[in-house]
């Protein structure tokens, strides 16, 4: 069955019998027009506006102070705060994706097992992902409180894994970095889990049986049978999550505002500070556009994969 593949029309025999006329494409275009217009006006236009802003000196309120060329971009490359934000953004994303993958694999295998009250259990396990991040972060802020941090109480006072002086989670460069990382992982691992699970459940059982009959052990089965089948799913899930993590303002805005100093500054945070707080839309747009090449790599790889599959 082809219905799940992208953009490919199902090859239903009945369709070929129908008379082709020009009414059908016309109606089709007319019906997709609202979607097309909406996307062009509210995604396409702002995107090009942001390109335009980034090569001009534009400020909030429409104030225009001349053409900037690439000076917004080149200025950023020499800016230590920007460098910090850039590497932090990459660092948070890269590290958290690895941790999410590891936790996600465990979670997926757990959810494959017959469990008592599985639906309820799954609902609880999914809470980090299903709760609005902006709200669950308020809970984390309370858990990271400098005086009443329950994490310090639990791991320091009760389990003696942390020692006095207990970490000042949101006030110390190292611990606040870790705090941002932790909330990102916490929010994303259930998603990783269900995506991996979706991949695993799509593997036909007879393939696994065949591998077993042929004498493949767990690791060989994993490497030669499971991985190739689930790779596309994992890849899409990964792109989706990377997009979210790279572009996420919520965690840093709520917990540290990029501080202390600029130790947890990220590109979205800096774009917010420069563009909205500082009113410099040109420079702010240039900052956000540094995200684009990172996302674009993912898009290209994704498209290549897609078209290769269609060709099969």
């Amino acid at each position: 069955m082809k219905e799940a593949s992208i953009g490919v029309r199902p090859a239903v025999a009945g369709r070929r019998r129908r008379r082709v006329n020009w009414m059908e494409p016309m109606a089709g275009y007319l019906l997709t027009l609202p979607a097309l217009v909406y996307i062009l006006v509210l995604v396409g236009y702002p995107f090009f506006l942001s390109l335009y802003f980034s090569v001009n000196h534009v400020f909030i309120g429409g104030e225009y102070r001349g053409f900037a060329g690439v000076s917004n971009y080149t200025g950023l490359l020499d800016n230590p705060i920007f460098q910090r934000a850039f590497w932090n953004t990459l660092g948070f994303t890269f590290t958290s994706e690895i941790a999410k993958a590891v936790l996600g694999i465990g979670l997926a295998f757990l959810l494959l097992q017959p469990l008592f009250g599985k639906k309820i259990v799954r609902a609880f396990l999914m809470l980090p992902f299903t709760l609005p991040f902006a709200l669950s972060l308020l809970g984390w802020q309370w858990m990271f409180d400098p005086e009443f941090s329950v994490i310090n109480y639990l791991f320091g006072h009760q389990l003696h894994l942390l020692h006095q002086p207990y970490p000042d989670w949101l006030g110390d460069p190292f611990w606040s970095w870790l705090a941002i990382l932790i909330v990102n992982i916490w929010r994303g691992f259930p998603f990783a889990g269900v995506i991996i699970l979706a991949g695993l459940t799509s593997i036909p059982g007879d393939l696994l049986d065949a591998a077993k009959v042929d004498g493949a052990g767990f690791f060989r089965t994993w490497h030669y049978v499971i991985t190739p089948i689930i790779a596309p799913v994992l890849f899409i899930g990964l792109i989706y999550d990377v997009t979210f993590t790279l572009g996420d303002l919520t965690a840093v805005y709520r917990l540290t505002q990029g501080g202390p100093g600029y130790s947890t500054e990220t590109l979205p945070m800096q774009a917010w500070q420069v563009g909205i707080v500082g009113g410099n839309l040109g420079l702010g747009s240039a900052i956000t556009l540094f995200l684009f090449p990172l996302l674009f790599v993912g898009v290209i790889v994704f498209l290549r994969m897609l078209y290769r599959r269609e060709a099969l």
């Binding site: 506006l49 942001s50 979210f244 790279l246 956000t288």
Partner: peptide
């Protein structure tokens, strides 16, 4: 349809500054 799928990959962060102007 594919172009549409790709707009998933443009996060709000990339659009909020120009959008605020609009």
């Amino acid at each position: 349809a594919i172009g549409l799928f790709l707009t998933y990959l443009i996060p709000p962060t990339l659009l909020f500054l120009p959008m605020s102007q609009i």
